[in-house]
Write a protein that binds this DNA or RNA. Structure first.
Lengths: 225, 225
DNA sequence: GCCATTACGCTACGACTCGTAGCGAAACCA
DNA sequence: TGGTTTCGCTACGAGTCGTAGCGTAATGGC
């Protein structure tokens, strides 16, 4: 996942795996305390208890290091079966919001994305290690909903791929924008309203989805899990 | 809009308005050529034909300067009346996508947002000069659609404000994510599909116009997991 | 055991950027 | 004309960058 392994090494002293873990943990710690702009590789090396040169031997620079450090945060995402499409969406969106609410994710991820606009290799790294890895959630959620009869099956694989990409952009984009740009928490109320919008659309106007299967609606709600 | 004006100056040499414009233009130029990370204030000053100290007298630092330089790009956004809510949305989303596709917006805006996660004043500056300023588009679009009978009127102002915020997060977030994270163009096909999803929701099975697929990808997904 | 190979810790280095201070000159107002 | 503020310029210490060089540590092959 992280640093590259230019060639399968045959002999010689192996790289310390503990060093890798320590460096990535130190990077997240530095992101929390200092943020992206004030994070220096020398500081990370000191925190991790390794030499600065060791860092440069494994990562090309700050960008790649931070991407790898942040990517590990997203591996926690799961899609528990909550019984309905709406509940499934709400559950995973809340998880995503919790991750994006962490300071190390906020500062690190956005800055890395900003840098990736001028660095194709970095953008690919982000996509491979963070973004595309989570599309499995959309795929599984759709498959479940189709089995339940909540969504119509999609026979055309190309069209289906486009839809998955679209849903992913909408969901991830909305949560990111809410959390980072608007600067307000993606809490349960917001997630509920968002899910209602995603399922029913603007014309359904937040008040109650066309089907009576799920939680959604402006009313004060309680049990949803 | 941009630099502060600490106190209404009474006498003395006035600040050069041309310098302000030249500095902001030079900042955008530097963003295009160098990107955020390699942009230095000394370089911007040279491009603008002013002294570096002049720059520091007007802006607190790189963050504030870039926010002001990028903010001007968003003033072009308009909401022409295209006759229907769907057409209005598609039109304004395409405009937004065109702005976000510019390199100076990509690199500058994302980096500024990343920095704003650790700087409340900066986040407020971004909201005031960029984000909130565009909410007028959502407000006007909704009002139009309600006059046309496409959307139900919303009597409760608090609920209405929440809805506007939600829509804004969804629209802006989706376009940003598509453009910057997924790294693919928010072209007409995508905008059409997105608008259909926004209006009708997932359950409406957003089947729009028939289109030949061109997008890369074509993941081997077949509703399975 | 010995050697080739690779990773590691440490130090030092030139190059660069940062943000500020200080100066004299320029532009405006009363 | 005097008072006030801005501007251009130079110079500066502080900090970071990324790399080179060296001796040492850990592994596999013979």
């Amino acid at each position: 996942m992280q640093s590259r392994t230019p060639v399968p090494r045959a002999s010689g002293r192996p790289r310390s795996a503990e060093a890798d873990a320590a460096i990535l943990a130190a990077t997240r710690e530095a992101l929390v305390e200092l943020g992206w702009s004030k994070l220096t590789l020398g500081d990370v090396a000191t925190r991790a208890g390794v030499a600065k040169t060791t860092l440069y031997r494994r990562w090309a620079g700050k960008n790649e290091l931070v991407v790898d450090a942040v990517a590990e945060l997203f591996d926690e995402l799961r899609l528990p079966d909550r019984g309905s499409l709406a509940a499934d969406i709400e559950g995973v969106v809340l998880q995503l919001a919790a991750i994006l609410d962490r300071p190390e994710a906020k500062s690190g991820l956005m800055a890395a994305i900003a840098e990736s606009t001028r660095d194709d290799a970095l953008r690919e790294r982000i996509r491979d290690s963070i973004v595309d890895r989570q599309k499995r959630l959309v795929l599984e959620g759709r498959a479940r909903a189709q089995r339940r009869g909540e969504l119509a099956p999609e026979p055309d694989p190309a069209e289906s791929a486009r839809t998955v990409d679209l849903i992913f952009d909408v969901v991830a984009g909305a949560v990111v924008h809410r959390t980072l740009v608007s600067g307000r928490p993606a809490d349960e109320d917001w997630v509920r309203a968002f899910t209602a919008l995603l399922l029913g659309g603007l014309r359904a106007d937040g008040e109650g989805p066309p089907q009576d299967d799920g939680p959604a609606g402006g009313a004060p709600l309680t049990a949803s899990s």
